[in-house]
Every structure is written in structure tokens, then in C-alpha cells.
Amino acid sequence: MVVAIHLSVSPELNALLEQLAVAGSCTKSEVLRKAIALYDVAFEAKLQKNRLGILDQNKQLLTEIVGL
């Protein structure tokens, strides 16, 4: 079963969604589904007192994602 959700966004956010969809060869809905999945991972990490970050190829922390 699929549930439809009405979502109002700013023109800037809509443009970003469109850019991400084109770059990822997917739909804006798929971008939002992936964003929610990523948020879920980040939220679970926070609950487990872990941290979320971006590592380089040598596993050095480049960016820590905070504030989620």
C-alpha cells in the first residue's frame, strides 16, 4: 500500500530536490525517501550515543554530522 503525502516546500528547496533527482537519476520522491532513511540512521546513531560522519579513503574523519 502506498500513502500519498502533500508537502509544501520553498521554491529553493524544490529546485534543490530537482537537482538531486536529476543528478541521482531518480524522482524527487525517491530523494525524499532516501533522505528519510538517512535521517533514521543518524537518529538511531544518536540514540546509541554514536556519531555520524564522513570519512575519507583513509578512514579519517572529514565532517561530523551534528544537529540532527
Rank of each mutant, 00 (worst) to 15 (best):
Q60S: 08
I65D: 11
N50P: 01
A35R: 11
K59D: 15
A21M: 04
V41P: 00
Y39M: 05
Q19V: 07
S29G: 14
N50E: 15
V9I: 14
C26A: 04
G67K: 06
L13D: 09
A45C: 10
S29C: 06
N50L: 11
S10I: 05
V3W: 06
V31Y: 03
Q60F: 06
T27S: 15
L61Y: 09
L32Y: 04
E64R: 07
L16C: 09
Q60M: 02
E12D: 15
K46E: 14
E30F: 03
L17P: 12
L38P: 11
D40R: 11
D40P: 02
A4W: 10
C26E: 03
L68W: 12
Q60C: 02
A21G: 05
S8Y: 06
L7W: 07
K49R: 10
L55G: 04
V66H: 05
L20C: 09
K46F: 06
M1N: 14
Y39P: 03
I5R: 14
A21Q: 04
C26N: 01
K49D: 13
T27H: 08
L13E: 13
E64P: 01
A35L: 13
L55D: 01
V9W: 02
A37R: 10
N50C: 09
N14V: 05
L17D: 03
E30N: 05
S10L: 01
L62C: 03
G53E: 10
V66D: 10
P11E: 15
L38C: 08
S8H: 01
V3P: 04
A37N: 08
L68S: 06
L7R: 05
F43Q: 11
L20S: 05
L52V: 15
L7N: 04
T63E: 11
L17S: 02
H6S: 12
L61W: 11
K34E: 12
V66E: 13
S25Y: 02
D56T: 03
Q48F: 00
R33D: 14
L62N: 00
L47I: 08
Q57F: 05
L32G: 06
V2L: 06
L47K: 13
A4V: 11
E12F: 01
L68A: 10
